[in-house]
Amino acid sequence: MSSPIHHGRVRRSYDTVAEEYRDRIGDELAHKPQDRALLAAVVEQAGDGAPVADLGCGPGHVAGWLAGRGARPVGIDLSPAMVAIARRDHPGVEFREGDLLRLPAADGEFAAAVALYSVIHLTPAELPAAFAETRRVLRPSGLLLVAFHVGSEVRHLTEWWDHAVDVDFHFLEQDTVAGHLTAAGFTVEATLERAPHPREAETRRAYLLARRTG
């Protein structure tokens, strides 16, 4: 399936669940101490007031959290409905519509970027291009935090919270993601894997913190 069609399915699915997603997921960082610690590390290393991209920002809750810790986040999401909610709920933060393979950002625009569970909607063949595009918009030595579900399966949903959808969730192995990051021009500096929290889907989660080389 070609990328335009595949990404269109993802866009339409997230447009469909956008409001409910915000209601169910919008406060998730309150229950995720590891996520908060890693995000805080990104903000600290990026520097006070530094521009930080939130790639696949959804309803903007992570970007809002980053703004509250002194960063200058820019949220980017494929779903227009998600972007509309993010702009409504976080009026002091900038949000843009965009695809991970064609980011609406200038070369070297960001000091850091976070991609929390957004690369899981890319096909495995798209990961190298996505990481190369992320490297493009980062400054030299810029940080990237990537989070994903661990495994090798693909979960296809046709219904999500009683809404009709058509979306795939690609589980990924740490070594695979690390290899793509290295090939794209990053050095992986830290990894973390954890079990799910009680309010999460029952999947193992992995986080890779990588730095742009050169």
Rank of each mutant, 00 (worst) to 15 (best):
H6W: 15
H6G: 08
H7C: 02
R11T: 08
S13C: 15
Y14K: 09
D15V: 12
A18L: 11
E19K: 14
E19F: 09
E20F: 08
Y21K: 11
I25R: 11
G26P: 12
A30G: 15
A30N: 15
A30I: 08
K32H: 13
A37V: 10
V42I: 15
G47A: 10
D48I: 10
G49V: 07
V52K: 04
A53D: 00
A53T: 02
D54Y: 09
G56S: 11
H61Q: 11
W65P: 13
A67C: 07
G70H: 05
R72S: 13
R72C: 09
P73D: 04
I76Y: 00
L78I: 00
L78S: 00
S79T: 06
P80K: 11
M82F: 11
P91M: 08
R96N: 05
E97C: 10
G98H: 07
D99R: 01
L103Q: 01
P104K: 09
A105T: 02
D107N: 09
D107A: 07
E109A: 13
F110S: 04
F110G: 06
A112L: 05
A113C: 08
A115D: 01
L116R: 05
V119E: 00
V119M: 01
H121R: 02
H121Q: 09
L122G: 01
A125M: 04
L127C: 03
A130F: 04
F131S: 04
F131M: 02
A132E: 15
E133C: 01
R136F: 01
V137K: 00
R139M: 07
P140H: 01
L144N: 09
L145N: 07
A147I: 07
S152W: 03
E153A: 09
E159W: 12
E159P: 03
E159N: 10
W160V: 07
A164C: 03
A164K: 10
H170D: 08
L172C: 10
E173N: 03
D175H: 11
T176C: 05
H180D: 08
T187F: 08
T191G: 11
L192N: 10
L192P: 08
L192F: 12
P196H: 13
H197Y: 15
E200F: 10
E200I: 15
R205S: 04
L208A: 06
R211T: 10
